[in-house]
Simulated scan of single mutants.
Amino acid sequence: MRTEQVEDWLSRLASAGPAPGGGAAAAMHAAMAAALVEMVCNFTVGRPNYAEHESLVRRVCEEATELRRQAVELADADARAFTAVTEAYKLSKDSEHDRMARAAAIQGALVMAAAVPVRTAEVASRVLELVERIIGRSNASVLSDLAVSASSAGAALASASVHVEVNRASINSPEVADRLGDAVARIEKAIESAHRISTDVRVRISRATPAAR
Results as ranks from 00 to 15, higher is better:
A105S: 14
T3G: 11
A79N: 01
V37A: 11
I135F: 06
R202P: 02
I205D: 04
A105V: 06
A190I: 02
L143T: 15
V37T: 13
S159C: 07
G22L: 09
I191P: 00
A211Y: 08
A24F: 00
E122Y: 03
I106N: 01
V111Y: 05
R119Q: 13
P117Y: 00
G22V: 09
A77G: 02
A51F: 07
P48F: 03
L13Y: 04
P18S: 14
A169H: 07
V45A: 05
P20Y: 02
L36R: 07
H163P: 00
A31M: 05
D200W: 12
A147F: 08
T209V: 03
A147V: 12
K90P: 00
S159H: 04
S149R: 00
M32K: 01
A101R: 15
S11N: 12
A160V: 01
L110F: 09
S55D: 14
I191Q: 15
T3V: 07
I171W: 09
S11F: 04
A115N: 03
A64F: 06
D145G: 05
V118H: 04
P18A: 15
L67W: 07
R47M: 10
T65E: 15
R80T: 08
H53E: 12
I134V: 14
F82G: 00
G108Q: 14
A158Y: 02
V37E: 11
D178N: 13
H53Q: 13
M100S: 11
V123M: 04
A147Y: 03
R186K: 14
K93Q: 10
T83A: 05
E192R: 14
E62W: 02
T199K: 15
R137S: 15
V166A: 11
E87T: 14
A24L: 01
A109C: 06
D182E: 13
R196Q: 11
V176M: 07
L128M: 13
A156D: 00
N49D: 12
G23F: 00
V162L: 15
N139W: 09
A81S: 11
A183S: 14
A25F: 09
A25Q: 08
R69N: 13
L130E: 08
V184P: 00
M28P: 02
T86S: 10
L56H: 14
S11K: 08
R47C: 03
A25R: 05
V162P: 00
G21S: 03
L157H: 12
P48Y: 03
